[in-house]
């Protein structure tokens, strides 16, 4: 179990990794990666039952995680690398021809990835399937999944919302990176998702709202989500797109844009190197 100070240090390094990966690749998605960095850091380094040494794609003996918003690949890869699933040096190959780190998560290249993701709205159903598979086989572990709030405009999300509650999948923990932004602008101006907490409650889920940039709040939410009460869990993490880099904060223009060399340097100056750059 990591202390909050240790989690903060890892998150700072992960943010540096994200900036450097996307700059090197000259494309990718830094905005949502930065908004979900603290969530994924807490998930992998504190909450999830996971171990790269014994990882298997069938998640036997371990929890599973799917980043349904697969464009969050930079943060996902950085957290996997820092957790020991592969060498951090690989992070510099993101999106390059022949890389193990495809533009969106794919299976069969590096350890740690359970399903491809990137075509939005689909990871929740896959995670629900893993959760049911674990229940059917008497396995006590859980399935975690991270959604984007913009992704919640996809219809399949709500198919699964209904189905997972019907099947009482309390070993399914979904999280939403609720940063309020999508490619075309603020979500409320594109197609409003409205009060997500009320929507998920109405679909029969346990709903927890937390601050996605405060580790005490994040860990407290994870603790609440362990309840075995026959209901799937949705943790709505209030976040800020581009969090940690002042000129990216709250700006949807950074959803899918790479920084220039100067912007990269300006961003890195705001993020402490704690574990050694790749």
């Amino acid at each position: 179990m990591k202390t909050i100070e240790e989690l903060k240090a890892i998150a700072s390094q992960v943010r540096r990794d994200i900036i450097r990966m996307v700059t090197t690749a000259k494309s990718g998605h830094p905005g949502g990666s930065l908004s979900s960095t603290d969530i994924l850091t807490a998930l992998y380094f504190s909450e999830m039952k996971q171990d790269p040494a014994t990882w298997r794609r069938d998640a036997l003996g371990q929890d599973a995680f799917i980043p349904s918003a697969g464009h969050l690949a930079p943060v996902y890869y950085a957290v996997l690398a820092r957790a020991g699933y592969f060498e951090p040096a690989k992070l510099g190959t993101l999106r390059k021809f022949g890389t193990d780190l495809q533009g969106h998560p794919s299976v069969g290249h590096v350890k740690g990835i359970f399903q491809p993701s990137g075509s939005l709205g689909q990871g929740l159903a896959a995670a629900a399937g893993i959760a049911l598979g674990k229940k059917l086989q008497g396995q006590p572990e859980r399935a975690f999944v991270l959604l984007g709030d913009g992704e919640s405009e996809e219809g399949e999300i709500w198919e699964t919302a209904m189905w997972a509650a019907h099947h009482k999948l309390d070993n399914l923990v979904a999280m939403t990176d609720w940063n309020g932004m999508q490619i075309d602008g603020p979500i409320e101006s594109v197609t409003a998702v409205g009060e997500l907490d009320e929507k998920w409650l109405a679909f029969g889920w346990d709903v927890i709202v937390a601050d996605g940039h405060d580790f005490e709040s994040i860990l407290g939410a994870f603790e609440l989500a362990r309840k075995q009460d026959g209901k799937p869990k949705m943790i709505l993490f209030k976040t800020e797109m581009g969090h940690g880099v002042d000129f990216m904060r709250g700006n949807h223009g950074w959803h899918g844009k790479a920084p220039s060399a100067d912007e990269c340097a300006a961003a890195l100056a705001q993020l402490e190197e704690t574990l050694g750059d790749f």
Binding site: L60, A125, Q137
Partner: peptide, 14 residues
């Protein structure tokens, strides 16, 4: 859509 996604997750678990 949910059925196919759920099936893929079930298949992941064996």
């Amino acid at each position: 859509a949910n059925m196919v996604g759920v099936a893929s997750g079930l298949a992941v678990t064996g």
